[in-house]
């Protein structure tokens, strides 16, 4: 069970994130997981100096474009790049765009975290 979980859509994402920013919450991270034909993205926030964490979850299609929250929380830039590399989640307007080469090298396997990919380490053959 995830506590304080709220379902949102990609259209309301930026408004909701802005509310956290106004309330001086700390951005914790996002978790992306592959549901088969869709991607589930969960954003976690933490009210500093409180101890409870809040979460927002949205489910998007694999080729859908979602807005970047790095304009509000710069810290999100690394994790957004990571989601793009590992799951192919298209994030629009990232403050720093590594172009899919943040963690992965040019000859690394592509979209390694997607479920139907062969999982092997040796170049993803």
């Amino acid at each position: 069970m995830i506590e304080n979980l709220k379902e949102i859509t990609k259209d309301t994402l930026l408004q909701e994130v802005q509310k956290f920013a106004d309330a001086k919450a700390r951005f914790v991270t996002t978790v992306c997981s592959d549901l088969g034909d869709k991607l589930e993205v969960t954003y976690y926030f933490n009210y500093s100096p409180g101890v409870d964490m809040s979460a927002m979850r949205m489910v998007v299609d694999k080729n859908e474009e979602v807005p970047s929250i790095s304009g509000i929380y710069l810290a999100a830039v690394l994790v957004e790049n990571e989601m793009f590399e590992q799951y192919g989640l298209k994030v629009k307007g990232m403050a720093i765009d590594f172009g899919g080469l943040m963690l992965l090298a040019k000859d690394s396997p592509v979209l390694p975290m997607v479920k139907d990919k062969a999982a092997g380490g040796k170049g993803g053959e």
């Binding site: 700390r26 914790v28 710069l74």
Partner: peptide, 23 residues
């Protein structure tokens, strides 16, 4: 520090009383 979402000793050095051990 809060807006950047930093944590740990780095955050506590900026005057925020936040530690997961408090949980």
């Amino acid at each position: 520090a809060i807006l950047l979402g930093i944590n740990g000793p780095h955050l506590r050095a900026s005057g925020v009383k936040e530690d997961s051990r408090m949980l």
